[in-house]
Design a protein around this nucleic acid. Sequence first.
DNA 1: TCGTACCATGTACTCGCGAG
DNA 2: CTCGCGAGTACATGGTACGA
Length: 203
Amino acid sequence: MVRYIISDASKRLNVEPHVLRYWEEELELDIPRNELGHRYYREEDIMALENIKALKDQGFQLKAIKMLLPNMDQVEDVSDHISENEKSNDRINEIQDSESNTDNLMEKKSQEIDLKLGTDNKLKQFQLIMKDMFEATLEENNILLTDTVSEKIIKQMDYLLRLKEEREEERFKRFDETLREVQKTRQEAAVTKSKKFKLFFSR
DNA sequence: TCGTACCATGTACTCGCGAG
DNA sequence: CTCGCGAGTACATGGTACGA
């Protein structure tokens, strides 16, 4: 397991060490310590901090980022599956390097597309999280106003809530499909890899 | 427009620990 | 002992939002 001390993590993330301590405190991050009490950052911590930095760069405040953190874990889960899948493809590609150049080029193109899809997927997840947050805030405010709102507004709220439910259902379906797709691709990758190995060692 | 408060970050300092 | 590194803390600074 790769461990980064705070100075290495700060260089990698391009932020000052005291900023990392500040983020840890403000965001209540669970950064482990070694026997000397020094912080060490794992690869997943670095990735989480990269996400935090990206959100900061987009102008989000730490409080907002803190609210997003549990949801960012979900984003990481999905991206982990995707990146694992990409890694499998990479390993297969390494074996294929010794084969035809045409195949190699096609695989590279395919990798580029996969990478783009992975990024888009992450972005979409983030957009959904933000949308949910805004909707939740609107819902809260609407609840506070229920004593004074007209029947028309209530009907509109119902309609919006129904839309939201439908969207959530659709989102869940898509998420389910993505998971199935990832599992399927991984199985296929494993089979292809096994075939390639058999072919390689039978020569 | 100005004063105030807050946020995020920078700076400076002390202390502890390990290595040479 | 000295040096380097990291932890922790206090205070300063710049930007921004907000109310009078």
